[in-house]
Computed example of a mutant assay.
Amino acid sequence: MESNTKGSLSPKPRFWAHALSRAARISRSLYTASVFAACALTATPALAQNPMEESAARSIGYMDCVIRTEATTIDAAVVALVEKCHYKLDQPVADTIAELSAVLPLDDTAPLAEQLAPIKDRFSEEQFGYFVELDAILDAAVSTDELGASLAKLEERALKSLGRSKEDLKVLEGISFARYSVELLSGYKETEAVFQDKGCCRFLRGVVRVVRAVIAGVESGGPVGGIVAGVKAIAREIIRPG
């Protein structure tokens, strides 16, 4: 009998190489999640006081994992988070997708004060003022190193001045998510070298836009909201994992 090798539907070697490469990248990003969490436990004494530190670090590691799956929508991001990155949700995937679709800001490029306007009444004037400051820090950024340092200083001040109420913790969570987002994205690369915005490169502007989306996402939809918002935002940027 004549062999049917010629008409075989077996995957091409290139396909397997791509699949294995992606699997390796996802595996590395899960390792990143554990490393970020470990770093949170050994952070500087001031930042280690943030009770939201470990959660933020681990969540941004998961965001890295989902980004590497090339998900670009809320639906795809949540499915990838669970099926490929092994995140444990406390409710069905469909419910999470519906919830995030309802609460995540439609324009994640708008100032935080505007994105968070629907939930502003949950916060005191002092608490909401930190989101205004976050906007100012993001807009003034000249490098990822400087941005990370500015966020760390803001976090230290917030830890000293805020209490530990539910709303205080939400503010601290947003700042910590921002700081770890910058740490993650600073290790990414740009897909093309194009300079604009008063001498700042598109890479930095992209980092700022993604971080702003992450903050709005976590404040509106919790840790999973922050992860998914970041995944959606980075899909529009020139930033990609290294």
Rank of each mutant, 00 (worst) to 15 (best):
T44E: 14
T69D: 07
D90P: 02
A77R: 04
V82C: 06
E54I: 15
L89T: 09
V82M: 05
P45M: 08
N50I: 12
P51F: 04
I60V: 15
R68M: 13
A77H: 05
A56F: 11
A77G: 10
L81C: 09
A94T: 13
D90T: 12
A48R: 14
C85L: 09
I74S: 00
Y87K: 02
D64L: 14
A46E: 14
T73L: 02
E70M: 03
T69I: 07
H86E: 13
C65T: 07
V93E: 07
A71L: 11
V66W: 10
A48E: 07
E53N: 15
A46T: 14
E54R: 13
A98D: 12
A77E: 02
M63I: 12
C65Y: 04
E53M: 15
A48Y: 02
M52H: 00
I74K: 01
T73R: 03
A48N: 06
A56M: 14
I97H: 02
A56T: 14
Y87H: 11
A102H: 14
R58Q: 06
Y62T: 07
E83I: 12
Q49A: 15
A46I: 14
L81W: 05
T72F: 06
V82T: 14
A71F: 10
D95A: 13
G61E: 04
E54C: 10
T96N: 00
A102T: 15
V82G: 04
P92C: 10
K88H: 09
E83C: 11
E70D: 05
C85E: 05
T72P: 02
P92S: 07
S55T: 13
T73I: 04
P92G: 05
A80C: 07
